[in-house]
Design a protein around this nucleic acid. Sequence first.
RNA 1: UCGACAGUAGCUCAAUGGUGGAGCAUUCGGCUGUUAACCGAAGGGUUACAGGUUCAAGUCCUGUCUGUCGAGCCA
Length: 445
Amino acid sequence: MQRIFINKISEYVNQEVTVKGWLYNIRSSGKIMFPEIRDGSGIIPGVVVKSAVSEKIWEDFSKLTQESSIIVKGTVSKHPKKENVYELQISDLEILQIAEPYPISLKDHGPEFLMEKRHLWMRSPNQASILRIRNEIIQSIREYMYNNGFILFDTPIFTPNACEGTSTLFETEYFKLGKAYLSQSGQLYAEAGAFALGKVYTLGPTFRAENSMTRRHLTEFWMMEPEMAFYDIEDNMDLIEDFLEYVVQRVLINCKSELEQIGRDISKLQNVKKPFPRITYDEAVEILRKKDIALIRKTESGEEEIKPFPWGEDFGAPHEEAIVESYDKPVMVHRWPAEAKSFYMKRDPANPKIALGVDVLAPEGFGEIIGGSQREDDFDELKKRIIEHKLPLEEFQWYLDLRRYGSVPHSGFGLGIERMVNWICNLDNIREAIPFARRPNRITP
RNA sequence: UCGACAGUAGCUCAAUGGUGGAGCAUUCGGCUGUUAACCGAAGGGUUACAGGUUCAAGUCCUGUCUGUCGAGCCA
C-alpha cells in the first residue's frame, strides 16, 4: 500500500493509503475516536469506529499518548461537514513507540518554557509553518540571486579583525596566530568577490557578542549580503526593491497555507510592490520634527534629556516607527550623517558630511531589515578612514588592494534573514524565526 | 552594562497581612461526529533562594538568582 504525505492527501480520495507520523491529539467518544495525525507535511484528522476495527486496534488506539509514533492505514474521505478538509477512515494501526507524557500540552505556555523545549515546540503547527516559510524565503533569495547573475560567494567565519570596528565580537584562540573573531559580516570579503566575479552574494551565519535582550536581536543570525561592481547607491536601491518584491510575492504564492496557519494578515504583504518610498535622512528628520517626535536619552547624571530631534543622531525605535507609519511598504532611508555610519561607506560627492548609506525599514513596526551602502572606492579616502577609526592598517592591506588594482564604484547590502522571517510571519519575538535561537542568556537546546 | 516589570502544582493562572485554589496535563470511569471535545473521580505544593518586620507573610521590606520587555548596539 502506498505511503503518502498528508499535504498531498486530496489526491487520494477514496483510496486506501498508509500514513507514517505522530499522534498530535486524540479525542474519544465511547465507540468512536478522532486521532489527529501529523507527518511533518501536515495534519489530518482520523476516524476510528469501534465496530469497524478489530478489538486489538481499538485497544491500541486507546493506549496512545500525544506524540506517539505510529503507522496507520485507512481510506481517504472528504469531511462530512467541511469543504476542502479530508480525513482518514482508519483500518489499521502499527505502534512504533508509545510516547512518555508529552510536556507541551495543547494549552498556553510561556516563552521560557517553550524555549527550554524548543526541540519539541517546533513540532507544533505554528512553529513548523514558520520554519517552512523561512525555508521558502531562503529558497526565493537563492533563486533570485541565481536568476539575476549573482555568484554564491561563501566568506570565512574566522576573521582576524572586526569588520566595522564597532560591535563586540566573539573571540577565540587561533593556533599560533593569536586571536580570531567570529565574523559579524562577510561584506569586506564579498567586495573582493565582486571585483573578481562582478556580482556576488554571501548567505551564512554571523555573530555579534552584544548583550542585546530585545525581540529583534540574536547573537547568531543568518545574513544575505550581495555585493555588486559598478553599482552606485541608486542602483543598489533599485536592486533592493526588486529583490524584496520578488521574495515577498513568492512567499505569498508558495506559503499560502502556512501564512493562514499562523494567522498572518497578508493584505499588508500584498502591498509590497515596486516602487518603495525613498527618503533621505534629512527628509526623515523633517518628518520627526513635524510629528514632534523628540529625542530622549539619559545624560551622564542619569537624568532624562528631551529635545527636538537633532541632525546627526541615529534613529531609535520610536523614530523608526514614526517614519514608517505613513507608508504601507518598506521605506528606504538614504544619505545618512557620515559620523553615524561605518568607515567603508562612500561620502556623498555633493556633501562630505553625508555617507551614501541606505537602511530599509520594514512596515508594521518591524524595524530595520536591511542596511547597505555604496562603498568607498578611493584609496586615499579609505586609508584615511581606517586610520581615523583606529583600525589596524596592516589587517586591511588586502582590502586596500581592491582600491589599488582597478578600483570601481560598487555597492551592496546586508539582509537579516531572521528579521525578514520576523516581519513576514508577524512574530512577537525573533527567537521563533530560527530553529534554535542563540541569545545572550540561552545556548541550549 | 543600565531601567521597568515579574517568579505560586508538570503547564497557564487565582488567592483583602488570617485554613494555598481552578483549568489543562497525568491515572481511572462514562459517552458514535469530536475540532484546545465534553461529564464524573483521584493523585499532585520547601509559594525562586537567603534574611528581616509582624501574634500571623504567597502577600510588606532588603539582598541574590532567573525570566520578560525596553535602552544602547545593530541584520
